[in-house]
Design a protein around this nucleic acid. Sequence first.
DNA 1: TAGTATTTTTAGATTTATCTAAAAATTAAA
DNA 2: TTTAATTTTTAGATAAATCTAAAAATACTA
Lengths: 217, 217
Amino acid sequence: MNSFTEENYIKSIYHLSKDGNQAVNTNSIAEQTSTKASSVTDMIKKLAEKGLINYVKYQGVTLTPKGYSLAVGIIRKHRLWEVFLVEKLQFKWDEVHDIAEQLEHIKSDTLVDRLADFLGNPKADPHGDLIPDKEGKFQSKDLIRISKMEAGDTGIISGVNEHSPKFLQYLEKSGLVLGKKIAVIEVIEFDGSVILLMENKEITISREAAKNILILA
Amino acid sequence: MNSFTEENYIKSIYHLSKDGNQAVNTNSIAEQTSTKASSVTDMIKKLAEKGLINYVKYQGVTLTPKGYSLAVGIIRKHRLWEVFLVEKLQFKWDEVHDIAEQLEHIKSDTLVDRLADFLGNPKADPHGDLIPDKEGKFQSKDLIRISKMEAGDTGIISGVNEHSPKFLQYLEKSGLVLGKKIAVIEVIEFDGSVILLMENKEITISREAAKNILILA
DNA sequence: TAGTATTTTTAGATTTATCTAAAAATTAAA
DNA sequence: TTTAATTTTTAGATAAATCTAAAAATACTA
Ligand SMILES: [Mn+2]
Ligand SMILES: [Mn+2]
Ligand SMILES: [Mn+2]
Ligand SMILES: [Mn+2]
């Protein structure tokens, strides 16, 4: 049985390794988990001992298959609970993350399966993040940032790259929510801000915002 | 912020004190929490420090108003989650307790309120145990054990006093589930077993079982 | 009421997850 | 290719929750 702490480290390592690919260094784990590098060294020794990560001193860590499937399982639970909170309990998309951080550690395989069924086996959470299936497979989508689009390009808002309540509330207020169709009218050369057309209205967003909104072409 | 451990001690004290009335002694807390008396002494000092219990050395403990409302809040969550699991996720009544033991520690007042609304503000959980409202008030019912009934008495099965999966599965198999109307035909003097009439069928249960089934007259 | 049994508390250790400060290894720069 | 900067690991401490063994207090009994 893994502690919440261990699970949070594994999840951090997963996210930092860009979904399980590259090696992750000690300092970045420390930052992600709000701990110190020395604490991380202690913990990664323990996780390596448990067979969840590959660890060579000074070389950073990678997830083993066992660690990877643990991470994906936690992420599945996190995202399913977020769907539950939004779809069934009327939470807003900017309110669900902290509660899901708690719920993701509830242990019961049956519960996860039943919850997924209850929700209609959703493929994405309220932020457009993909929900892996029971076997840990993601049904990958090809999303691009608005900041990579050019005048004339069109698409549908399908995800975000930044999950802070502040940003999500801003999008909500501006009507830039998942499912909306947008077209890029112009990219301002000076500062990279982008003028969009959405529902026959022009909306200007900063380059920073444009980098964090994901579009399905 | 209270740890899961602290919450479990408070809940144990609540249950052992018969819903918050009498004083609870160290050994019984140790038994309930599967720890040793010495561990309990340490923990109750801490809980007293936090203002959750009244503690005088060698005199046992009682809940303060603050401790009482913490306990009731946890019990509310536990029972609401049990309703959720049975009503929405098709769990059986003998399968939900352990999962609810985890879910009862999730911290979010909004979540509890929304969950209660979502479930239609149920007054009782799948075992007939009362669910306190937001203010911690129980809508008390007057239930009696079948073992206290006499030949000729009738009523509706409305709760259980024993929550082990074994017992719940036995009731399920025998059809002795919540809402069923029963009549006592005879109480066997020899061993206290009880012959019931339910849906025109006779069912004999042991005195032990009769003590653990609760009836609304 | 004195003596015994039971319950509770204290004393001292252990495990987990964390920290600070210092040492060691790696990486970058001169 | 030395030297300096950065990163990582080790050493030693601390706080939380637990334990065993022993001491102290309370309760029971003859
Ligand atoms: Mn989230
Ligand atoms: Mn999300
Ligand atoms: Mn229960
Ligand atoms: Mn119950």
